[in-house]
Computed example of a mutant assay.
Amino acid sequence: MIGLSDVSRDSDYANKIIDKADYISSNYENIFVIKNGTDLWPIFNNGLIYFRPTLTDGDSITLREAIFFGCQSIVSDVVPRPHGVSLFNLKEDNVLNKLDDMLEKIYVGN
């Protein structure tokens, strides 16, 4: 699932992101794109992992919602993050390994 914030199409960058997300969702049946300001918090109640690979960030409301609903979270370490999330560095860490490790802990319980 890919969640896009309420992004206007006023910039070339926003258009590229929206077009790429639309392409991915139309070509992969197991990926869904949520956009246009749709609330994500109901999904966190049943979600498996919240993944936030941002290069810049603030105090993310979405991350705090994921934590509140008990959704495991893997987030970039670009700013201080709340307790209880798994951090990664976009330049140094293998993010796929982190995701695999978290999925194994969820499914196997280790």
Rank of each mutant, 00 (worst) to 15 (best):
M1V: 06
I2H: 08
L4F: 07
D6P: 06
D6Y: 10
V7Y: 14
S8A: 00
R9Y: 08
S11E: 13
S11W: 12
D12E: 14
Y13H: 15
Y13S: 14
A14H: 11
A14V: 05
A14E: 08
N15T: 12
N15L: 13
I17Y: 12
I17P: 09
I18T: 01
I18V: 15
I18F: 09
I18E: 09
D19S: 15
K20L: 10
K20N: 07
D22C: 10
D22R: 13
Y23W: 09
Y23A: 10
I24L: 13
S25V: 10
S26A: 11
S26G: 11
S26H: 10
N27Q: 13
N27A: 12
Y28E: 13
Y28R: 13
Y28S: 07
E29R: 07
E29M: 08
E29P: 02
E29F: 02
N30F: 15
I31V: 13
V33E: 10
V33G: 14
G37W: 08
T38C: 04
D39K: 07
W41Y: 10
P42D: 00
N45T: 09
N45E: 12
G47A: 00
G47V: 03
G47M: 06
G47H: 03
L48W: 02
I49P: 01
Y50M: 01
Y50V: 03
Y50A: 01
Y50P: 00
F51P: 05
F51I: 13
F51R: 05
R52G: 00
P53M: 04
P53G: 04
T54E: 11
T54I: 02
L55D: 10
L55E: 11
T56I: 11
D57H: 06
D57K: 01
D57T: 06
D57A: 04
D59R: 11
S60R: 00
S60Q: 03
S60I: 02
T62R: 06
L63R: 02
R64N: 08
R64Y: 05
R64L: 02
E65W: 00
E65Q: 12
E65R: 00
A66V: 01
I67M: 11
F68R: 04
F69Q: 04
G70A: 04
Q72H: 11
S76T: 05
S76Q: 03
D77K: 05
D77V: 08
D77N: 15
V78M: 04
V79H: 09
V79L: 09
V79T: 15
V79S: 14
R81A: 00
R81L: 02
G84A: 03
G84V: 12
V85F: 12
V85D: 11
S86C: 14
L87Y: 10
L87D: 03
L87F: 08
L87V: 07
F88N: 06
F88D: 03
L90N: 11
K91C: 07
E92W: 02
E92D: 15
N94R: 03
V95I: 15
N97W: 07
K98N: 06
K98Q: 10
D101K: 12
M102I: 15
L103H: 01
Y107A: 06
V108R: 11
V108L: 07
V108H: 09
G109A: 05
G109N: 06
N110R: 14
N110F: 15
